[in-house]
Computed example of a mutant assay.
Amino acid sequence: MTPVEHHAEAVAVSKRLRWRCRRGTKELDLLLERFLDDQFLHLDAQDQAAFERLLGLEDHFLQDWLIAGQSPTDGELHRVVELIRTTEFPPAR
């Protein structure tokens, strides 16, 4: 795959995931979209897949884990939740 093809694929994945980051609350939207923008491309393939799987879950799980501080029992999801929780984001633009 050429660098141009790789970039085009990354942009397509990012657009698809951005849509999936839109949730029921502004807090989740901001948290997930900022993580996608700032960290997703730096994750390894396993963590990227876990993030995508996380986006497939219902909002109440995400609120419990990302906002209320609870933890998933699934190890891969737990790792991604911890990455999201501990990521320091630059100030909102």
Rank of each mutant, 00 (worst) to 15 (best):
Q39C: 13
W19Y: 09
T73P: 00
V13K: 06
K26D: 13
L17G: 03
F61R: 13
M1L: 13
L30I: 07
D29F: 04
R53C: 07
F35Y: 04
R20A: 13
L55W: 01
T87D: 01
G56L: 03
T86D: 09
P3L: 12
F35N: 02
A10V: 10
L30F: 09
A49F: 07
D64Q: 15
T86L: 12
S14Q: 10
P3H: 07
L66R: 01
D47A: 15
D29Q: 08
E27H: 11
V13T: 10
D74E: 13
V80I: 15
P91V: 14
R23Y: 09
E9P: 00
V80H: 02
R79G: 05
K15A: 03
R34E: 06
L57Y: 10
F35Q: 02
L77H: 01
Q70G: 01
R34I: 00
F35L: 04
H6I: 14
H42Y: 10
A68K: 13
E5R: 13
G56R: 05
F35V: 07
E58W: 00
E33W: 01
L62I: 11
L41G: 00
L57T: 14
E88T: 14
F35G: 03
A10D: 11
H78I: 01
I67Y: 00
I67C: 02
A49K: 15
P72D: 03
L41N: 10
V81E: 00
K26L: 15
L57N: 05
R18H: 10
R53M: 07
L54V: 04
L77R: 05
D37P: 02
H78F: 09
R23S: 11
A92I: 14
A68R: 13
V11Y: 06
W65M: 00
R93T: 12
L54R: 01
T73W: 01
E82K: 13
E27M: 14
V4A: 15
D38L: 08
A12M: 08
R93D: 10
F35C: 04
G75Y: 05
T87G: 03
L28H: 03
E52N: 06
A45N: 08
